[in-house]
Each structure stands twice: as C-alpha cells, then as structure tokens.
Design a protein around this nucleic acid. Structure first.
Lengths: 135, 135
DNA sequence: CGGTATCCAACCTGATACTG
DNA sequence: CAGTATCAGGTTGGATACCG
C-alpha cells in the first residue's frame, strides 16, 4: 500500500469492513449499494420522507411506477427495516407506509450524494460530450 | 405538500432539480445512482483512490472481476470524467488509470454512504431476520 | 500488456389479468 | 383498496476465444 499518499485508500478497507461478510457470504455494503442503484427504492424513500402515505397515494404520486414494482420495492424496504407497514382495519382496507428511524437516517448520506450529483452533472455531461466526440 | 412537517420533503425536489432533465430525456440523478449501484464502478473508484494503477494491476487486486467488465467499467468511468486514462509508449505498452478531480470528489459523499452502511448493517440484518421469521 | 468480439444464461422489469 | 400471478422483453454480466 506504499506510503499514505492518499488517505482515501482506507475506503477499500471500509468496503469490506463489516464483520458479517464471512457469515452471510455476500458483502454487506453491496446490499445497501444495490438498493441505492435500484430503480425505485430511493425514490420511494424520498416520497415517504415527506410523511406517511398510503399505497395508492404513492402509486399516484410516483410517475411511471407499476403496481408490481411498488409492491415489491415496498416489501423489500420493509424487510430491511427502512419502511414500516401499518394496516388499518377499515373497509375497504387501507395500508399506510412510513419511514422508520433507520429509513430516515439514510436520507442524510443519500442527500449528500444527490447534492454531489446535481453539482457534478454539468462536468459529467461535458466529459461525455468530449469523449463521444473523440470516438 | 401540507405544512413543512418534515424538511426531508425537499429531497424529492432535489431529485428532479437538474436543468438538463428535459434536454436529455433522462434524469441526471439516475445516471449517478446507476453508477453507484453498478456492480464494479464504485469498487474500482475506491481502488483507484489509493493512487494510479495499471490495468492488470487492477485486474489482480479486484477479486472476481472479469477482464470484460474491468475494461467496460473503466471506459464508462472515463467517459463520465471520473477516471483519466494515460497510455505510456513502452514495450509492451502500459496503460495507467487515475481518478480525476471529479472522481476524487465523489469519494466524499460516497464515503458517508459506506459509513452509514457499515453502521446500519446490524439493524438491517436484524430486521430481515424478524421479517423472514414472520413469513 | 491491454484489450475486442461473440455467445449465452440469469435477472430485472413492465404489461396484463385476476383476487379478497 | 391493496395487492398476487403469470408471461415476455430487454439488459447485465460471465465464459471463452482471439488480436496488436
């Protein structure tokens, strides 16, 4: 690893740091990253960040999501403890989804990422234009 | 949007904030998120964070990556301006990859995400165990 | 050394139809 | 209202072989 020419080298360690790696057989960081990259997970989390919402309310608000993917993504988020599901015994039945404390806590680091993205889009688009022009 | 019961509601705005959305037809934030969720992009960025590396050096250091995906991911990172590619006219030829300034800047918000992941893994695993036990 | 090219299996997602 | 079930398409990634 040479001399500490760049403190950023520790990030590779951080990646594999979690102790459960050997236990589960899959990298724990991957689990989180897969959710970030997932087409709908983070969008749903952000819509729920505004407050609890019911199933069809989310369905109406989120553009283009299919019922299948809304159901599936919500279940995955619930399984990971990021979203809580509460059924009200009304007729017809209503189901409310809300972020858990853990779910809310994800918004902080994720927000930094979104900010980076919005700040960097111009640079990225410019780099792409240059690269594509040279090929 | 009711009253500002939760400041986090602004994240939905941030998601769609970038002006280039209408121009390109694809959400700019998605571009970045896709890279985060990509199987190899961020791992490569983190290995390069330690300093410039040559192609086969990365190939040896990164576990399980195929030559195809290493080539492809590096080209995508280069296209987006996150990685710079430098060819040295030696024999046999050698090619060095290094993070650009933009690439380095991504490590900051991304690092926060990794830290959140490592801190939250225990909670997530516990939530999964509870959820799976109930089904 | 540093790639390309081709094939292929697995996965992810959307569309559609149906249910308590 | 809030889902489930089934099928089809596109995309992703790995294996393998070849090239300057």
């Amino acid at each position: 690893m040479q001399t500490g020419q760049d403190a950023a080298a520790i990030f590779v360690e951080r990646w594999n740091e979690a102790a459960s790696f050997e236990q589960t057989g899959t990298c724990p960081v991957r689990n989180v990253l897969d959710k970030i990259g997932d087409k709908w997970s983070m969008l749903i989390v952000m819509y729920l960040a505004a407050g609890p919402k019911r199933f069809n309310q989310l369905h109406r608000e989120i553009p283009d999501i299919s019922q299948k993917m809304l159901t599936q993504t919500l279940r995955d988020l619930q399984r990971d403890g990021l979203v809580a599901r509460q059924v009200f015994d009304t007729k017809p039945p209503s189901v409310e989804y809300r972020l858990t404390t853990l779910g809310h806590s994800l918004i902080v680091p994720f927000g930094h990422l979104i900010d980076w993205a919005n700040q960097s889009i111009p640079s990225i688009n410019k780099a792409r234009a240059v690269f594509d022009a040279a090929s």
